[in-house]
Design a protein around this nucleic acid. Structure first.
Lengths: 212, 212, 212, 212
DNA sequence: CATGAATGAGTGTTCATTCAT
DNA sequence: AATGAATGAACACTCATTCAT
């Protein structure tokens, strides 16, 4: 008899992702210590024991949340930079907006604040995050800036400082949103904020005579 | 067995400050949940029970740490602004350096990161921090900027945005130092960093023709 | 070291009853405050944590002990009164003796003294006990007396007072047995005591001319 | 200089009584375990440490409360019986009413319930209470009954049973009042209750032909 | 693979008791 | 004698982790 496999079987591969998704939301909402594995399991629709079939410990789950949440987006970004053919300004703008769509505006937006909060308790994870997320994000932006400078579209600026200047406001937006912004927030409109930030930044980068 | 009992010291006056100091260090180092009250007491040289003579609960201790750590410095800063007679640039520079000496370079420098980490778990404290620390810090800087603009020393800039621009790098420095910087830090030299930041900012603020 | 772990038994169905039984014994023996949950768990053969799978708190356990211990017996008694076809004297005698077999002579006999001891600390439970146990016990006896009076077997007496007179000696017996009787008891023979009490009471109730 | 000693000195001898009085109220209200020595001290207007100048431990205080509360009244009662010259009925009535005035209607009325509650945890005290309070109370009543029987005022009854019959309703009244009566009480009027009880009892005791 | 009952180490909190002043 | 700051043992309760089914 050709019966379709029951959902339980078919979801076997999806389980880890469902669990990390549930865990991400709770970690972001309540922090690492404040999140109970029972709640994670319940939100993913499985039992507490099942969680341990996929993750050795709460700490392992936490690492998986960070790794699986962030890496795919970075890889997508690398692909964009590799294949982009338009202006560097459009590339930079596209990267930031894509990042906002995929990360900033989702639960993943809580990850930077989460890493800041828990880095002290998870040095290994902090190192991993630094080496894989931060370093690679900066590398991505570095390539964009160097591309623009090489083509004469951007002015010759100190690249590392420019990377700081580009990332800092975005990070602060997220950090605020997931900490004090929750209780006494002035509710920045993130889209407008990003737009303003990009306009200012690209204007500042634009070589004289080029069309920003 | 003749175990020597530690001398039972009585120092009611100094106890709260000793306890909040010990708690500050541990909260900054391990976070709220990761800090055991027994360790706080031990670091302050008292027993666990003694802690409860002065603070009703772990949460109350946390609140006291934030309040007693931060408020005095803000008040000192307000006094400086009130009585200062030199240039606004010197005032701004003095405020930031004083802040670094009193807060940034001490354990209190961990408080912003602490608040960011725990705001979600302590909404009441987050509100308190927002209303008393953040709002009043901005007010302090607002007065300095308005003073400079009024005397013609500073250009006419959007004050609120300028406040953001002045505080953000300093906050990021601290946040970094107490989170990821601990394990994979590029060890910014804070003094030089602050100097550069102040130079740039004051230069940007300086009215044309004035001597920065 | 190869310590043999005790077999981890799974018996969800039976657990609550095993736990309340263990708790009953300890509450009766040591009182509410003097009973440690760890001892309750140990006596039931489980760990401390297991207790919390079934009862939210020590107070909840206490409530369950009282409710589950007493209510079933009352319901059985109501059934007896409903279906009994013999004389009212035999019914009254049967009820009291059944009560002694099911409650008085078991650990449940300690419940009245327990309620007296803890009523002040658990007003809600005291109200529950009053409304469900005391009121319903009196209702049971009331029906028996009214039945006997209606058939002419009993004299026309003040029913509420008669209820008091019937219950008081039995309650005092139990209260004594579980308090001062434990250390300096004159070891009443409960069976003989009950017999005498019933004989006297039924004789006092018997209508003239009826065969007691 | 002939200055009157300060109150602190003058109250030295009164301290133990003040402390046991405070303790009695709290023990009756909250039970032994539920009473905090700090509250006892506060109610007596002294510090916690002072309590230990007079009583070695919480248990010693508890014992003192029972002993000092009860014994004086018993001695007074013994004196009454020794010197009384009226009828035995008046003597019995006077004893019970005196008892109600001195014990039943005061905080001391909570002692029987207290002893019932804590007898299991304090066997030594229970023995003391039995030997000194219960035995001597019964002895007192025994003498009254024997006196009445000897003069022909009372019928020849089984004295020990009569003692039970006389004391039981009074004890139940007190027990009820300090336990379940507190939350769901039918608020017996104690004076009327005692009056009825005495009338019935004395009527039952009265020899035929004597004027009750 | 999945479950969920069971475990037990860990911690915040209370409070009887002690002791230096 | 009196104080009250300090102590530390005790306990209720939580939750990450395990394992028999």
């Amino acid at each position: 008899m050709d019966i379709i496999a029951p959902p339980r079987q078919r979801r076997k591969e999806a389980r880890p992702a469902e669990l990390t998704a549930a865990a991400l939301e709770l970690f972001v909402e309540k922090g690492f210590a404040g999140t109970r594995l029972e709640d994670v399991a319940a939100r993913a629709g499985v039992s507490k024991g099942t969680l341990y079939l996929y993750f050795d410990s709460k700490e392992a789950l936490f690492k998986a949340v960070v790794q699986e949440g962030i890496l795919p987006v970075l890889e997508k970004g690398a692909g964009m930079v590799d294949s982009f053919t338009g202006s560097s300004a459009d590339l930079l703008r596209g990267l930031i907006l894509e990042w906002w769509t995929r990360i900033g505006s989702t639960s993943l937006g809580g990850v930077p604040k989460l890493m800041i909060s828990e880095a002290g308790n998870f040095p290994a994870l902090a190192t991993y995050y630094h080496d894989n997320v931060i370093t690679r994000s900066r590398e991505l932006m570095r390539r964009v800036l160097q591309r623009g400078i090489a083509t004469g579209e951007f002015r010759t600026v100190d690249v590392e400082t420019a990377i700081d200047v580009i990332f800092a406001p975005v990070l602060l937006l997220l950090i605020w949103r997931y900490s004090l912004g929750a209780c006494c927030g002035v509710a920045h409109d993130p889209a407008a904020y990003l737009q303003t930030h990009l306009d200012l930044t690209l204007n500042g980068l634009a070589a004289e005579g080029s069309a920003p």
